[in-house]
Structures are given as C-alpha cells and as structure tokens.
Design a protein around this nucleic acid. Structure first.
Lengths: 331, 331
DNA sequence: TTCATTGCGGACAGCAGCTGTCCGCAATTA
DNA sequence: TAATTGCGGACAGCTGCTGTCCGCAATGAA
C-alpha cells in the first residue's frame, strides 16, 4: 500500500501540528494498530527525530527539539508567512542574514504551489512601502537569481551599466552576494567571455532562464571576496563623497545598537560623540532616522544633505505650525 | 535496514538541495539501484510531490511546484533565517500576516535545536532597533504563548493591569490575537474563574508553563471577535483621543499605498487631501513616516503631536545649521 | 540522420521487514 | 490502589521492496 513511508511523514506532520498525542489517538488517525505506532516512533527516533514520550495517564508523545531539524510541514498560510518573512529579511529588513534568507527563499519558492505564489507577491509588495532605506530589490528577482545559481542554469536579462548604456546579457551565474548595502550577481558573461559582477538594481525587466549552463565557480573560489575586490578596484558609486555623515553627541556605544548595521556605520568621535556614515549614498530617510534618535546632532556633509535637512525642517515646521504660532497652514 | 522510509525523506531532501539530478546520481548517493530510484520517485509522486523528469541527455529529475507543499528540509542557517524572518513579520514588521507568522513560528521553535535558538534570539534582538513603531513585543513570549494555546497547556505569568496593579495569573490560554495594533492573549483565568484578555505588552517577566490544562474555546468561538468586543466595551487605551491625525495635501488614492495599513488609516478629505490617523496612540515615528512622504501636511491633533513635531524640527534645525547660518552647533 | 544518454515501466524471484496479536513490565497520576 | 499509558519481546503471515533484465520512448549533440 505504500503505507509505511507515507505514514512516517504523516506521523511527523501530526506531531508538528499538536504537542501531545497518545499512542491510541495516533493509531486511530493513521488507521494502524498501536503497536505499529510504537514501531514508527522508534523509526523516527532512529532517524534522528527526538520524539519524547511520557507514560502514565498524563502521558503521550511529543516532538521535542533535537540535534537536527525535522522536515517542516507547513500549511498554506504558514508557507506564505514564511515566504513573506524571508523576503523582507532578504531585501534588507534584517541585518546579517540576507544571503541565507535568499537561499532559503529559493528553496521554498521552488516548491511553492502557484496558487500561493501570487499571494506572497501581493503581500510583500504591499508591505515594501516603508522600511529601512536602501536600493529596493525585487524579491522575485532575488529568488530567481539565487535559484539559477544553485541550479547552474543560464540567464538572460537586460542590464543598464553605470554610464547608462543598456545591454542584453547572457550569463552563467555563480553566486548572489550582498555587500552590506547592495546586491550583486557574480556571473560568467557568455558574450564577453569573462566574469562580470552585476548590480541587481541595474537589472531591468524580467530575468529569463537561458538554457543549461555549466556550473561556474567565481574567480578565486569565494564570490564574496571577488565582489569586494571588484568594488575596491572599480570604486563603485558608493563613493565616500556621496555618503551622508552626521555627528551625534552620544557615545558610539549608545548609538550603535540603535542604528541598523546594514545601512550605516558608527565610529566614535572622542568619548562623547560619534560619527554615523551611510554605507551608500545618503537619502532623506537617513536624516529622518537620525532625527528619531532624538539626540543632539550635526550634519557633517555633504552639503546637499544639510540642504535636505533644511527642507525637511520647513516641511515639519509647516505641519507643526497648526496650534500656536506663525504661518497657519490651511489648504 | 529502515531504508525505504528514510530513503524517501533523503530523496526529497536531495531534490530540494539541487534542481537537477540524474537517476544514476541519486542511485549512487542513496546506495541503491537506479530502478529503485525510479520506484521511489513514483512513490513521491503518488504522495503528491510533483517530481518532474526529462528524458534525454539533458534530462534528470527535479522537484516542481505542485498542489501541496512538500516538507521543507532546511539546514541550520536556513532555519535561522526563517525563524528571524518570522519573528520580524510577527512582531509587526509585515502587515496582515502577524498571526499566521506566530503560528508558523510556534511550529518551528518547537523543533528548533537549542544550539540554533540562541542565535535566533541574538539576531532578532540586534535588528529590532528600527522598524514600524508599535508596542514592542518579545517574539519569545509570542512564540511561547502561541505554543501554549496550541498545546492547551496552562500558563503562569505576572501581569500589570491598566491601573498599574501587578498580579500573578494562572490561566488556560485559548488564542493569541492581533488587533492590528496590539497583541492580546485570550485565556481562562483559573483564579477568577472567568475569561480574560491580556495585553501582551503588560505581561512582565517570564511566562511559565503551568501544567496540563483543558483545551479552551473562547466565548463565542471566535477569539478575534471576542477581543474586538472586549476592546469596544472597555474602551482600551487606543481611544480616538490618543490617535495622531495628520492631513496630507495629496489625494487619498496616492497616499494609501505609501502608508502601512496596520499602522494608520487613510480617509479622503475632499478630492485633493486626505487625513491619516494612527490606529493606536501616536508615536514619534508617525511624524517621521509622514515627513518621509515629502508632501505638504498639517498636524490636526492631538496637541502633543504638534509639540513633538516642533521638537523634531528643532532637532533637525540644529543639525542643518552646520554649514551656513545661525547657531553653530559644536560640542 | 544517427547515436548516446536518460527516463519508463513490466516481469520475476527472493527475501527483508512490516503488521497485528498477545504478553508482561514500568512509570505516572488520581 | 487502580487506571492509564508507553515499552518492547516473540511469533506467524504475508506485503511489498529490491535487484536484474528487458525493450521502448524522448531528447539533444555530433
């Protein structure tokens, strides 16, 4: 009947749905004898899944935390939640786990039923309106690229270079790398017959699969290191000149935990102050975030940032003017 | 041997790790004959997992997206990414899927090996610095409570009532509910012998398991509806008076997509303006979000919000003052 | 076109191992 | 103390898994 294997999966699933089951309940559910349940539990244990059991009238079986993660059996809604969570984490919502999130996302999206996929897109689109600033990356693209790297398939896409020229690329991808500020694709460009790194935010339109590719390993073996080298040599556009710099009159130790690492760095400036620099070009949001900290601060540069700060002050000034003083703002 | 069931799981796992496998590769990996692999693939298919196969020199097996989600086999790093993603989603980072995220989180954390658990906590603590404002809820507490509801175990915790009096509660939980602004626990209070709703942000210290409980169903059957009724009757502190209200000089249709639904509502005010109201009490961040929109606006109330706006203006004004004009700010 | 590669699945023989039954034992709680 | 619940040995029967061997079909490269 193909029972025994299916039943093991079903058993695992049942144990994840509820905490406590008596052997009899499980037996009824799976339509076998209690003895078989005991044997199945043994099997799960010998597979490494820690099924705990307690004898007595309050007893039963439960799935505990073991050395290894059992296969997760998610229902539709839970799968959506996981996918959405991973997408926000990957596209910059959570520091430090972007690349892992993308890997997990690729794994999940590969098997995600189509009916769920649209709901995931809908949900994560709706929520990407806010969030920590940074180049906005489409999680679909991210998942597609990560999947292609894993599966060693070719890719076609349109790319806009730094100087604005648009090209069509045919590549064999190797890895997707997050620099702490931007996403890059390390790939072998078939037309140019050499390695290239592509900024994901410069990829336009849909990314299309491009047939079977060879499995490629980035020059030097470590794609992250490769991207770092490339960025150093070409400079990138994350030039220091474009970075926003603000001096906060609190010690660095106090500021750091309140500032997302992926977005800005904090360096001490003496004992009682520190300098916060954006990793990439500054944006309005940088200012706003700093203002929220509600500590004395000073814009060090660039001048445009200070200018923007003044505009923001004007904007907020208008808004705040309602109750008492100057220029009453009415439409 | 215990092979056949274990092998099915292993096969599923292999198919999730890489996209393309030939039958021979799989056979070598699992140390069985190719014929057995074909049979196993058949078994997976008959279990509902869509294993696609292509004949020919470019052929092989792959796991496709099917009608049902197969068990996800995550490695350690991926599991951490999933857990962290769910935690941010649950504690308010992503609109609309909070409760589902909590459910998935409870499922995952139940089986998460201990060595991974601390890393999850470490990562999600580090990243909770920013994000959409709202009562800050510890994801650990959330997962604990959700698990207790699912497993129908009792709970002990310390609770601070609205008037500030602290009590110890022994309850049998029924459900964890998200109002769109706050988290609530619906539970049967054993000492008071009646149902109560508890605001999660008023729970103090650790939540402890309190022995076996009965499975409880919230009055009326629908915990969400129950919480809504309770909130309406007691008023809660999310009174209209505490809500922040700001008028934006753009049509509601333009504003809505840029404002997280879970945090604020947008109502049209004539054709060219709209009024944004926070769902709960306003916070500094409300101002900030509105400022980021960079459209003309007007604080309608409450007065404290306007006052805060002025403070924020002053803060930014200092900062902006650096380059040219008035009061130079130096430490 | 031709050939190599790869998946498909029927038939068969041998036997591994799964199943249910029956049993006594141990732990836990009321 | 009694009831509940899990544990696991023994056994008989037979399900169904495995490897082998076969010819067929689809695909892509030479």
């Amino acid at each position: 009947m193909m029972q025994t294997s299916a039943r093991l999966l079903a058993l695992l699933s049942l144990l994840q749905v509820r905490r406590e089951w008596t052997g009899q309940e499980l037996a009824d559910r799976l339509e076998v004898g209690p003895r078989t349940i005991r044997r199945d539990v043994d099997k799960l244990r010998s597979l490494g899944y820690p099924v705990e059991a307690a004898p007595g009238v309050a007893g039963g079986y439960r799935l505990g935390a073991g050395g290894e993660l059992p296969p997760l059996l998610l229902d539709d809604a839970e799968a959506i939640a996981v996918a959405v969570g991973l997408r926000t984490a990957a596209s910059g919502g959570v520091a430090g786990i972007e690349e892992t999130s993308v890997r997990a996302l690729a794994k999940l999206e590969q098997v995600l039923p189509h009916r769920l996929r649209r709901r995931v897109s809908a949900l994560s689109d709706a929520t990407s309106a806010f969030g920590v600033e940074g180049p906005r990356i489409d999680a679909d693209v991210l998942a597609t690229l990560a999947g292609a790297c894993r599966d060693a398939t070719g890719l076609h896409f349109a790319y806009v270079a730094k100087d604005g020229t648009a090209t069509r690329r045919k590549v064999e991808p190797s890895a997707v790398v997050y620099s702490g500020y931007r996403w890059y694709l390390v790939a072998f460009d078939l037309d140019r017959d050499d390695w290239r790194t592509f900024r994901l935010d410069r990829i336009r339109g849909r990314v299309r699969p491009g047939g079977r590719g060879r499995r490629r390993t980035a020059p030097g073996g470590d794609p992250t290191a490769y991207v770092k080298r490339q960025l150093r040599s070409t400079g990138g556009d994350d030039t220091p000149a474009a970075r926003g710099r603000i001096r906060l009159l609190i010690p660095a130790a106090q500021a750091s935990p309140r500032i997302p690492d992926r977005y800005a760095t904090v360096e001490p400036d003496g004992e009682h102050a520190c300098i916060v620099s954006t990793r990439g070009a500054w944006s309005r949001n940088f200012l706003v975030w700093m203002a929220v900290l509600d500590v004395p601060m000073e814009v060090l540069g660039p001048p445009e940032l200070a200018e923007t700060a003044r505009r923001l002050v004007a904007r907020l000034g208008e808004a705040a003017a309602a109750p008492p003083p100057e220029t009453p703002v009415t439409s």
